[in-house]
């Protein structure tokens, strides 16, 4: 399929990725070649075939409603790029 720069830009936005114009072009070319490669699946007749999203037909993995020990706040915040000892900090959500 043809992939326009605009489409790639939109996908990048969905994926929260930023590219320079130059990167955008090389990515478009690579993506297009991968997409045309995977498009050979069109040759497979999948009429009436169910999707397979799990390798095994497992079901009902359930847990009892019992409290388990979690992490201390200190441990939870230990890897945070920014925190105030209580909360994670991020640039303003409301611009």
């Amino acid at each position: 399929m043809q992939l326009t720069i605009e489409q790639v830009r939109k996908v990048a936005q969905l994926a929260r990725l930023e590219f320079t114009e130059e990167q955008l072009e090389s990515f478009s070319a690579q993506l297009a070649s991968i997409i045309s490669f995977v498009e050979q699946l069109k040759d497979v007749d999948t009429e009436g075939v169910e999707v397979l999203s799990h390798p095994h037909a497992l079901q009902d993995a359930l847990r009892e409603d019992e409290v388990q020990e979690g992490l201390s706040r200190q441990a939870a915040l230990a890897n945070a790029p920014a925190h105030d000892g209580e909360c994670f900090l991020v640039p303003p959500v409301l611009g």
Binding site: I35, L41, K42, V44, T46, V49, E50, V51, L52
Partner: peptide, 14 residues
């Protein structure tokens, strides 16, 4: 056309 199709072929391969 892409993701769902792949999951169907996946079942056929399996």
């Amino acid at each position: 056309a892409y993701y769902k199709k792949a999951l169907k072929v996946r079942r056929m391969i399996a």
